[in-house]
Design a protein around this nucleic acid. Structure first.
Length: 636
RNA sequence: GCCGAUGUAGCUCAGCUGGUAGAGCAGCUCAUUCGUAAUGAGCAGGUCAACGGUUCGAGUCCGUUCAUCGGCUCCA
């Protein structure tokens, strides 16, 4: 009889051919129901899988990532059955799990919202009937026969390597789908799900191939979690920066400039504060700043190599019948600045920053608020250093990034190091040196990071930073890239102690990435309640009645003199209404002034969290706000 | 760029099967001068995205264009 090793070191002896489900019942008792699959000697298996010999087993529940993925993958199959039963002509293609839920692509005319509801209803019916999932193994010939009516499945079967076991799952007694599995033992356990949207998607993501209809859904083990998820979606909708941007009068978009943001007064304040912050941080760290032209000769883009890789995304213009291009990146301009004089090794490292406005011709369909635009400002910088300085510079850059993210209340970022891709330039030893410097930089700071083998740029390895916002969404912002290409192409040199020219190492880096996009992220992260230092309206004065207008104006002037952005609401409206308006417009401090305040030269303070803090002498409040700004405090 | 949906007042939206546009909020005026999230009354505001077609008649039906929104790596 086989021996089974279970977690915690317990051993069981069981009958040959017993299934994992039987084992679960036996060893887990009541908890067996929570198991959706099991690791058998390190491989994920269906619970219906028989145990043939000694092995190590660990049961999987949907509390862990693999279990949840499998559960959602089964959900996709549940949806597929529902779709096929309602639309027998639809041809199922693939139905994988994605980061948030699952989808299934069908070859079928577009589905409507009503179709979605019908499908969901049918899914509920299927769940209530129950569908044991049965795994079957097929020979290639059987598989080709079984799926002969579905060209997509046939294509997949034909692509499978010779000799691989082809499997399919039968749901109950009917719907059968080609699938590697594993799956939950019975679809009946999928109790909470929602179909979220329909969209067109290409077969295999290739725009030259057939357009399919994709249905996205999400599933959970209980309705409570589903409800929480839908609430989070609703919250995200409320925080949509496009909505808040309009409501808070920050920016707008116009037909006259598709994908080009128009910054209003308040948005400009945010933009300027953000720029000033980055400038200040750069200067503190020994950066010099430059500013290079927006339009540069097309020859330059040929020389930089951008033409070959980037021409599709560039805008062009002719001047005096000579060809020019609008810059999609700042580096070539920055390199020309570097080359204006000879550099000694004593000058290095040179850290040259540029808040550079770049234009890129993104496909019209991918434009999205401030997140995806056609013109944006990068907080760019190029570091020129010697090979010996590389690791130190990398450490400084990583620290810089993390420091900036903390300032905005983003916890430690997720970090990814990408190494040499197949298609690359530069010698192996130089790649080795640079990659090692990136590893060492991260290790010296004792940071956790992931390695993406072969995902680096063709011109060098890189580190990317993903920040997580308050809704736990991930945003790629910072990047540190080593570049072996540009110094060669532009013949960059510095004079070393041996009196001869040497090639410097070049690093590109951005921390925020795009100021526009970062502002969008910040708006959604904070729900529009920006920290004091970057907030467009830091204080709003509300005089109780007309006779307090002049006092309110006087306090406003005092605050403005002290560097605070303040406004007075002198409208002939009730106090309550004006307070409500100030709250909705997200002024950080709402300062009510009436007879009492006039008399004591104070203001009555209310904050955005709906707290009334009572009277504060004006000089005290001013000092407090100044301190809050100076320290860039994360405010309520 | 491709697929689908949407486009009515500054904003959010109503307008059934074609008969000539309506509400709330915001704005303006007047009254009110108020102590912590919506005072009341009145006024004004629209080539119904644009263009073309069908019709006696189009916000409504058809076509084209434009813009916006949701998607278009996740490999059974």
């Amino acid at each position: 009889m086989p021996h089974v090793m279970l977690p915690g070191g317990s051993r069981e002896e069981i009958q040959v051919g017993s299934t994992l489900a039987q084992l679960a019942k036996h060893s887990l008792g009541k908890q067996a129901k929570a198991a959706v699959a099991a690791w058998m000697d390190g491989e994920l298996r269906d619970l219906s899988c028989p145990i043939e010999g000694d092995c190590t087993i660990r049961f999987v529940t949907i509390a862990e990532p693999e279990g949840l993925d499998l559960f959602r993958h089964s959900s996709a199959h549940l949806m597929a059955e529902a779709v096929i039963s309602l639309f027998p002509n639809a041809k199922p293609t693939i139905g994988p799990v994605v980061e948030e839920g699952f989808y299934y692509d069908f070859d079928h005319p577009p589905f409507t919202e009503e179709d979605l509801e019908r499908i969901e209803k049918r899914m509920r019916q299927i769940v209530s009937e129950g569908r044991p999932m049965r795994r079957i193994e097929l020979s290639r010939a059987e598989a080709l026969e079984q799926f002969k009516d579905n060209p997509y499945k046939l294509e997949m079967i034909r692509e499978m390597p010779e000799g691989e076991t082809i499997t399919a799952y039968i749901q109950g007694e009917g719907f059968t789908d080609l699938c590697r599995g594993p799956h939950v033992p019975d679809l009946a356990c999928i109790r909470a799900f929602k179909l979220l949207k329909v969209a067109g998607a290409y077969w295999r993501g290739d725009s030259s191939k057939q357009m399919l209809q994709r249905i996205y859904g999400i599933s959970f083990k209980n309705p409570k979690e589903l409800k929480a998820y839908l609430a989070a979606l609703e919250e995200a909708k409320q925080r949509d920066h496009r909505k808040l941007g309009r409501e808070l009068d920050l920016f707008s978009f116009h037909e006259e400039g598709q994908g080009f943001p128009f910054w209003h007064d308040k948005g400009t304040i945010i933009y300027d504060e953000l720029s000033a912050y980055i400038r200040q941080e750069c200067r503190r760290r020994g950066y010099i700043e430059c500013r290079t032209p927006m339009i540069l000769s097309r020859d330059l883009w040929h020389r930089s190599g951008h033409w070959d890789h980037y021409a599709d995304a560039m805008y062009f213009v002719d001047i005096d019948e000579k060809p020019y291009a609008i810059k999609p990146m700042n580096c070539p301009g920055g390199l020309l600045v570097y080359k204006t004089r000879l550099h000694s090794y004593r000058d290095l490292p040179i850290r040259q920053s540029e808040l550079g406005l770049v234009h890129r011709n993104e496909l019209s369909g991918v434009l999205h608020g401030l997140f995806r635009v056609r013109a944006f400002t990068q907080d760019d910088a190029h570091v020129f250093c010697t090979r010996q300085q590389l690791t130190d510079e990398v450490v400084k850059l990583i620290e810089f990034c993390i420091d900036v993210y903390r300032t905005f209340g983003f916890p430690d970022p997720e970090i990814k190091l990408s190494t040499k891709p197949e298609d690359h330039i530069g010698s192996d030893d130089v790649w080795e040196l640079a990659t090692q410097a990136l590893h060492e930089g991260l290790q010296r700071l004792e940071l956790d990071y992931k390695v993406d083998e072969g995902e680096g740029a063709f011109y060098g390895p890189k580190i990317d930073f993903d920040i997580l916002d308050s809704l736990r969404r991930r945003w790629q912002c910072g990047t540190i890239q080593v570049d072996f290409s540009m110094p060669e192409r532009f013949d960059l040199t510095y004079e070393a102690s041996d009196g001869r020219p040497h090639r410097p190492v070049m690093l590109h880096r951005a921390i925020l990435g795009s100021l526009e996009r970062f502002i969008g992220i910040l708006i959604e992260h904070t729900g529009g309640k920006l920290p004091l230092w970057i907030s467009p309206e830091q204080a709003r004065l509300i005089p109780i009645s007309e006779r307090h207008h002049s006092y309110a104006s006087q306090v406003r002037a005092e605050l403005e003199t002290g560097g605070i952005r303040a406004a007075v609401d002198m409208r002939d409206e009730t106090l309550g209404k004006r307070i409500r308006a100030a709250q909705l417009e997200k002024a950080n401090y709402i300062l009510v002034v009436g007879d009492k305040e006039v008399e004591s030269h104070s203001v009555n303070v209310r904050t955005r969290d709906n707290k009334v803090h009572g009277a504060y002498p004006v000089p005290d409040l001013l000092a407090q706000l100044q301190e809050e700004i100076r320290t860039r405090k994360l405010s309520v």
